[in-house]
Design a protein around this nucleic acid. Structure first.
Lengths: 234, 234
DNA sequence: CAGGAAATTGACGATTTTGTGACAGGTCAC
DNA sequence: GTGACCTGTCACAAAATCGTCAATTTCCTG
């Protein structure tokens, strides 16, 4: 399982050590010495995973993580943070901020590789970038547009991702927790009812273009997108 | 988000400490002092999550994790392992064994709770969600739909679960007590007569699609779902 | 065929779940 | 700055479902 990994670490010795080990494990490593550089690289290269030292000169690792999570395009990239012993406060903050895992220095190469493997493995299979068409709706991730026939549908970022996920996994019922995992990310701590609100906003956006009834409520379970009617009439 | 958590830890003081903290966070905690006991409890109670100390007398935590992963029924239960600093070998083995996360002692209550929340959230959807087909009926847990031929059947959540159970255990008579255990859960306290009412509602939903007679009453014993006619002799 | 236990049925208040509108922060482009 | 979005949470309204009861009906026993 080779992966493109961005290593953000200001201390050259440690940087070298880690890079060498990851290289030996078959990963391709790109390095950055500060958060600003790292941010640029992430945007340009979209690595599979970011190894992020929490203590950095200038912009902190926490701040960088926050920014990566805030950006639509980089939100899905797993982050493993590197912390020094005793920075426990940061661990909690980091996990809540959206880090997928953390490792306390000093750590062994084997451990690091195992962690990376675990994080990569459990990352949800990414939705494709291919346009999706279903019922009277068409959605194109590349252009970020949704159309109902000829008429365009305007959606906020979250609603777009929600609809995208539902359209790529139609018919199946998704619990609110699953939707939070898949659409918001498994590291975000948000109330389950928030899903309801976004479903409502999505419905509100779809209704004027004649696509109401597409998103169905399955009481006690969650929501489902289906071209079939929820119940047969009469 | 309350959960049933099995805590496997041999040291009473730590056990007590953790249990107290989890209880305060709203979780229900069951404790085990060794792996053998833990294994039995998991099979009986199917907890939502297992907190597993890696170092145990007798069967090791690793071995227990392996067994839980090997068993179909317990495979999906998330495991968070507790390790002492320096048991680095175990960490690697544990992650490769399928532990969902691990925490290094000593850890803060906040961290533990945050981890548990994260793991519970990303728990994969149930694996045994295969569609069931029987007689003229088909039921699909994934889409939460029931069809009699082409015609859909509308059911409430409880009726759906009841039908699902009956369809996966057909031709067998289930007492009201058994149905309460299996469909409602063995912890709820409801009148046995309630089963009758739901059976009636289920029958009422099935009758208009020509599936009456599917659920049969066995006087004095309970109910049975059968594709065969209720009585042979006229 | 009568007596009585067991099961069906219709009704209903209570509870749980979902839909909605409003709102306080936060972000981003000007 | 500032003004137009977005977002996540509430509180409350609306709706669906649940469990129970009591009245009836069904079915076995003797």
């Amino acid at each position: 399982m080779a992966a493109n990994i961005l290593l953000v670490e200001d201390e050259p010795a440690i940087q070298e050590l880690i890079a060498a080990n990851l290289g030996r494990a078959g990963h391709h490593v790109v390095r950055a010495g500060d958060a600003e550089t790292a941010q640029r690289i992430v945007r340009d290269a979209l690595p599979d995973l970011v190894l992020l030292d929490w203590m950095l000169p200038g912009m902190s690792g926490i701040e960088l993580a926050r920014r990566l999570r805030a950006d639509e395009r980089t939100r899905g990239i797993p982050i493993i943070m590197l912390t020094a012993r005793g920075e426990e406060q940061d661990k909690v903050a980091g996990l809540e901020m959206g880090a997928d895992d953390y490792i306390t220095k000093p750590f062994s190469p084997r451990e690091l590789v195992a962690r990376i493997k675990a994080v990569l493995r459990r990352r949800a299979p990414q939705a494709t970038e291919d346009p999706v068409q279903l019922g009277g709706l068409s959605l194109d991730p590349a252009t970020h547009r949704v159309n109902a026939g000829e008429r365009p549908v305007v959606l906020g970022p979250t609603e777009f991702r929600l609809l995208h996920f539902l359209m790529t996994h139609p018919e199946r019922v998704h619990s609110r927790a699953q939707l939070l995992d898949q659409v918001w990310g498994d590291h975000v701590f948000v109330e389950e009812r928030t899903v309801d609100v976004h479903v409502r906003r999505l419905r509100a956006a779809l209704e004027p273009v004649g696509q109401d009834g597409l998103i169905q409520t399955v009481r006690g379970s969650g929501y489902r997108l289906s071209a079939l009617p929820a119940v047969a009439g009469v």
